[in-house]
Nucleic acid binder design. Structure first.
Lengths: 114, 114
DNA sequence: AGCTGTACTGACAAAGTTGTCAGCACTGAC
DNA sequence: GTCAGTGCTGACAACTTTGTCAGTACAGCT
């Protein structure tokens, strides 16, 4: 029976990964850790991402309570995304992941170098 | 251009996730953190996993330097997998991920309860 | 002789994720 | 009037990951 990882497995590691897993979620959180941004700002700051995927990931992160969506009721619409209080508890974890990833990348590099 | 996350992105977060990402990798590492195990032992200790996926994940982890494969040259073959010295640097990171995941799961539960 | 167990591979299907493309409804600039 | 920009959706194609099934080669048990 193929059980999606997204479907609430009782494993806490999977639970965390299901929140940050997604091709661009790490990058999005990274950008937003410097302060709130508009949808189109985010889009421009991550050149390779498509609008479709940006919005899908943003919606996931809002649903998971990591981000907050604030919309000014104007025309044209003006939407800001920011990291929620809960989302900030995730940031130090990401930093640790990042640290490990950096040393891992260095290792891979030195392997390719030889 | 669809760029696989597995294909060395320069983002350290992605680099780390590409190592531990996989439906069962967290669970496998969890089991092995108690000591080396044989392929079939692992298989029995994770009832839902298929042999195919176990072996594919094990091979990934060996390739990434996280696990060590030791084979006794006997018939029938006897293969032990254990966490490498490098792999052990990953374990504390997994523990932090696990801690966050646990509180996240509790939060999800209390949401469903109401 | 037939069955089980070991560790693993290959071919392929199903499911999941990501990307592409078109479109909405409105506004302001040219 | 046409174009660009805003934030977003739906349909669908392409790609990736996971699962299913069969098969390998040897050995021990009955």
């Amino acid at each position: 029976m193929p059980v999606s990882k997204k479907e609430s497995s009782p494993c806490p590691i999977d639970a965390m990964l299901s929140v940050i897993d997604g091709r661009w979620k790490g990058t999005i959180l990274w950008r937003l850790s410097n302060g709130p941004m508009r949808t189109s700002e985010l889009r421009r700051s991550i050149p390779e991402i498509t609008e479709r995927m940006l919005i899908r990931h943003l919606q996931d992160l809002v649903r998971d309570g990591i981000l907050i969506r604030r919309q000014k009721q104007t025309v044209p619409p003006c939407v800001y995304y920011s990291i929620s209080k809960y989302g900030w508890t995730l940031v130090p974890v990401l930093e640790i992941i990042c640290t490990w990833g950096r040393t891992h990348l260095k290792l891979l590099e030195s392997c390719r170098a030889k």
